[in-house]
Every structure is written in C-alpha cells, then in structure tokens.
C-alpha cells in the first residue's frame, strides 16, 4: 500500500469494521462500519446513505449498460442493474427512498496517447449511466468527485455519510 501511508497512520482510530467492496459488487452496512472500494479507474463508486437510520451502501460499477455488452456478468457490474440492486438491498436494511442521498466518485479516463484513448473513455459513460439510474429512482446526488485522469480509492463512513477519496500523489479529499 503506497497511498498516503502517513495520513493513514495519523488518522484517529475509528470504530467499526472496514468492509471491502470488490469490483462489480455492492455491499450495505450500518454505522459505525465503513465501506471501502479500491482502485476505481473508469469504474464508478456509487455511495448511498440514509441519514435517519445511518445505513450506507456502496456499489463498484464497471460498465454503463447491461444490454450493450457481450457476455454476462453480475448485476452490480452495470450501472443500469447495479444501482437498482443496491437500492433494493438498502430497502431491505430499512431505508426509504425518500431519505437516500447519493455521492459518486470515479469515472476517470485512465489512458492517454492517441485517438484510441477517446474510444476508451468509458468512465464518462459510466458516470452518465449512474446519474440516469439514480434520477429514475428519484435519488438526489449531493456530491461528486468524477472524471479526471486518476484512479481513486474510496471509503464511505456509515456513521456520517462522508466519502473519503484517495488518489496517487494528491491530498485526501472528503465529500
């Protein structure tokens, strides 16, 4: 681990477990646990939070639209299926849609070098697809850290809904 190891060491000891959300997965947790997903590139981390019961959910979405791709895959891989699946899981944990707020991070364009890089700009499409899926479910996006050209590691604190974002060689941001 090379990311801000200094900052990590100095961070106050936090309560709760750290729950890892893998690529193309989603998880739901309660305060004071934290949901963590590592190395988002063009993928988008969708963090949902219900401030009333302090339940959080995090999805690591990889592709915009399940209908556009060959092969199958877990629902959480796609923005169109993954966001809806995460919301359902939040509801099972006691959340109500009217209370949910969303924060997004990721959707970077990682590769540069020629015209092919533009074809690979899948990050932007992922962000658009996630916004659309949230809009359809009536969930408001309260903060975003999307685009750019850097990978991100994010952590959602379910005690307060804050999303911490780490990148290589840049200061930690909290949204």
């Amino acid at each position: 681990m090379c990311l801000d190891s200094k900052a990590r060491k100095e961070a106050p000891v936090q309560e709760g477990r750290e729950i890892h959300v893998g690529i193309a997965e989603y998880r739901v947790a309660r305060s004071p646990d934290r949901l963590l997903t590592l190395g988002l590139g063009s993928c988008v981390g969708v963090a949902l939070f219900d401030p009333v019961i302090r339940v959080g959910g995090l999805a690591h979405v990889m592709l915009p639209d399940s209908r556009m791709f060959k092969g199958g895959g877990k629902p959480a891989k796609f923005a169109d299926l993954g966001v809806a699946a995460l919301v359902q899981e939040m509801q099972r944990a006691g959340s109500r849609n009217g209370r949910l707020v969303a924060k997004l991070a990721g959707g970077a364009q990682m590769f540069f070098g020629n015209s092919r890089a533009a074809e690979m700009a899948i990050g932007e499409r992922n962000v658009e697809a996630v916004r659309q899926a949230l809009k359809e479910l009536g969930i408001k996006i309260v903060a975003e850290d999307v685009g750019g050209s850097q990978g991100r590691t994010i952590s959602l604190d379910t005690s307060n809904g804050l999303l911490t974002i780490r990148t290589l060689g840049r200061a930690v941001r909290v949204i």
């Binding site: 590592l38 190395g39 988002l40 063009s42 993928c43 590769f111 850097q150 990978g151 290589l168």
Partner: peptide, 16 residues
Amino acid sequence: VLAYDMLGALFATSVA
C-alpha cells in the same frame, strides 16, 4: 496507450 496509476484502476478500465 499508456498510464501510470493504481493497478486495479488500469486493469479494470482495460477490461471494461
């Protein structure tokens, strides 16, 4: 094309 960043970000982006 080339990039320097976190392995997970680059690998998943390449597959996507």
